[in-house]
């Protein structure tokens, strides 16, 4: 981050103990990159990484603890580590970035796992708690205004465990924030992340040669460039801004344009056919996302990031269009590599 140096100047004014940051989901996209970023930041003295696997970006400052959030006694273990390492900032990032068929496990990890994490933070209070949430939790609905504010209810999609688990997690975090006034609780609702290196259901969707869409529907889409997302988390670690914030790159694009910019072709399907088809494909485990995600191809689900810009002082450095182009550029480079390789096999 370019502003890292400026910030160190500011910190240099008053001598302050270096932060100890703990994070769950350390080996996932956000966790791994944040560890890399925090390793470079002088204001962070120690990084405590919780995951089932050691993140490859771990450096000198990182101490890894193998912790499985689906295990029943995990809260005591986390609290122990929090006390031993004297953690002051907790980043809860252990959420799935793509839907899974293992919904029972996902429920244990996201909903129950959040409960364990919060119990640990009750037992051994931290100064700050930052949680990753997503704007898709608002749900795509015909009644959505074009820009959803943070006060809009999280409706999710009917029958979607993937979304409901995350909504439950947000609810327990909101309760935690009320019970623990001494803890700064920041929830970042991030729009779907896109960029050169991220890998999730969205990149898989845009990675197809023919990208299915719903005939006659072309909703406005909003993405977060991966750098913008990471910058927001880093900012939330460095600044105290309690509350819920929508995070997304600037601007919107119609779905058809997104697909075109990604260098793909659309495959329009009539919506009365598409829903049963998607249901069958999901049941047969042949699709990336469950059938209710078709709603996101039909209705608008775009968040208003004004609050984050005002209170968190976070500014998106990228636009949705740039996120798509960056993703598409990296993707076509990968395609070129693959094509070059496969043409000589």
């Amino acid at each position: 981050m370019t502003d890292g140096r400026n910030d160190t100047m500011r910190v240099a004014r008053g001598p302050r103990a270096k932060r100890t940051v703990a994070l769950t989901g350390a080996d996932a996209f956000l966790g791994r990159n944040l560890i890399g970023l925090l390793e470079d930041d002088d204001r962070v003295g120690r990084i405590v990484a919780f995951d089932v696997k050691n993140p490859p970006s771990a450096g000198r400052k990182t101490r890894f603890y193998k912790v499985d959030l689906t295990q029943p006694s995990v809260d005591a273990r986390i609290a122990e580590v929090l006390a031993a390492e004297d953690v002051d900032t907790f980043l809860h990032l252990a959420f799935l970035s793509s839907p899974t068929h293992a919904s029972a496990w996902a429920h244990e990890l996201e909903s129950v796992g959040t409960m364990h994490v919060l119990n640990a933070c009750r037992e051994r209070p931290v100064r700050k708690f930052v949680m990753w949430s997503q704007t898709i939790l608002y749900g795509a609905a015909p009644s959505n205004p074009n820009f959803l504010s943070e006060s809009h209810p999280l409706k999710g999609q009917s029958e979607s465990r993937f979304l409901n688990d995350k909504i439950e997690a947000e609810q327990v975090v909101a309760r935690f924030a009320r019970q623990m006034p001494g803890t700064v609780v920041t929830v970042l609702r991030v729009a779907p992340i896109l960029g050169p290196t991220v890998d999730n259901y969205l990149t898989h969707y845009l990675g197809r040669r023919l990208v299915p869409t719903l005939m006659g529907f072309d909703p406005l889409m909003q993405f977060t460039h991966e750098v913008d997302a990471l910058a927001a988390f880093k900012l939330a670690v460095m600044r105290d801004a309690p509350g819920v914030f929508n995070i997304a790159s600037e601007g919107v694009l119609p779905l058809a344009t997104v697909i075109k910019l990604a260098g793909r072709m659309t495959l329009p399907i009539a919506h009365p056919l598409a829903y049963p088809l998607a249901r069958a494909l999901w049941a047969a485990q042949l699709s990336e996302a469950p059938w209710m995600f078709l709603d996101y191809l039909r209705w608008v689900c775009v968040a208003d990031t004004e609050l984050a810009q005002r209170e968190l002082k976070w500014r998106p450095a990228f636009t949705t269009r740039e996120a798509v182009l960056d993703h598409g550029g990296a993707q076509s480079l990968r395609d070129a590599h693959l094509m070059r390789a496969s043409s000589h096999l």
Binding site: F29, N33, P196, V198, R334
Partner: peptide, 19 residues
């Protein structure tokens, strides 16, 4: 691309390795 995102190379690494 690397510069865009310091340290997030690993995602692409498996693909590059395969290539």
């Amino acid at each position: 691309l690397d510069k865009l995102l310091e340290g997030s190379r690993e995602q692409a690494q498996p693909i590059l390795d395969r290539v």
